[in-house]
């Protein structure tokens, strides 16, 4: 029972980071209809950057937010390249994000090398329901809850957040009332970059990241986003947590190397099960 609880907690922590990456997919897709496959690479950049900044440059509490902000800027740059000229089809933009993802991976190798990097996180552990849990994992869960609450408040309460939602809901009407839909798309990319960066910053202390971590992170995040129909951040959170728990249970009871395969299988099942919903949403 204790073992199961341990896997559940670590699964929730890992799933939280998938949910953050997934919510980045959702934010971009809602506004631009583009699937941004550079999300995984940006998460890796976040982890790597925080390691560099924490290595004698900045203290905890400053290094992490700065890494997240830089990832936001990287996300914005990805948006500029992916959205291109007005009228660029989303499929072309998707391919551009794949290309940019490879470019970022090359930059990661150039800047940080090929070895996995794990920045120092929150030290120590605490006992929860009789199980020892690393404080870093609790931090991941707490930060994710905060991030999702902030995201919900941003979209529902702020004027800019409402303009983003309006751009997603009806781009023609948004343009008609004077909202610059392309600028909103770029903002969505920047926001997604920050979410990806936050995921990287949070996950790297417990799961070392390297240039080849981008694909598993992107796939897991995408799977979570697919669970949310690529439109709902809340359902993406549920999807991410489900994937994280499934992965940790697979690693715990079966084999650690099957984690990604389990995530992919789950994504496949979800996509087949939700195919009717996608058709409905496309029709709308």
């Amino acid at each position: 029972m204790t073992e199961l609880f341990t896997y559940l907690v670590s699964g929730i922590a890992l799933g939280s980071s998938f949910a953050l990456i997934g919510s980045g997919f959702v934010v971009v897709h809602r506004v631009t209809r583009v699937v941004n496959f550079a999300q995984g690479s940006i998460a890796v950049v976040g982890g790597m950057l925080s390691a560099t900044l924490l290595d004698g440059l900045l203290p905890h509490g400053l290094a992490e937010p700065l890494a997240v902000v830089i990832c936001g800027a990287v996300g914005l740059a990805v948006g500029f390249l992916a959205l291109g000229r007005r009228g660029t089809p989303p499929l072309i933009s998707l391919i551009v994000t794949l290309g940019v993802s490879m470019l970022i991976s090359a930059a990661i190798i150039w800047l940080w090398g090929q070895d996995p990097v794990s920045p120092p996180g929150l030290d120590g552990s605490t006992t929860l329901l009789g199980v020892t849990v690393e404080r870093q994992r609790l931090l991941v869960v707490g930060a994710t809850v905060l991030a999702f609450t902030g995201l919900a408040l941003f979209f529902s309460r702020s004027y800019v957040g409402k303009a983003l939602t309006a751009s997603a809901s009806n781009p023609f009407a948004a343009r008609m009332v004077g909202i610059d839909v392309r600028r909103m798309g770029l903002l969505a990319f920047a926001l997604a970059g920050m979410l990806g960066g936050l995921a990287g910053v949070l996950v790297a202390p417990t799961n070392a990241v390297s240039f080849y971590s981008d694909l598993p992170l992107a796939l897991s995040g995408f799977a979570a986003a697919v669970f949310g129909g690529l439109v709902s951040p809340l359902r993406t959170l549920v999807g991410g947590l489900g994937l994280g728990i499934a992965g940790q249970l697979t690693a715990g009871y079966l084999n650690g190397s099957y984690q990604t395969e389990a995530a992919l299988l789950l994504m496949l099942v979800i996509m087949i099960a939700r195919s009717s919903t996608f058709v409905h949403e496309e029709a709308k």
């Binding site: 939602t165 809901s169 023609f172």
Partner: peptide, 9 residues
Amino acid sequence: EGRQMFADM
């Protein structure tokens, strides 16, 4: 034409 609401808002 067609009112063009932000339907979910």
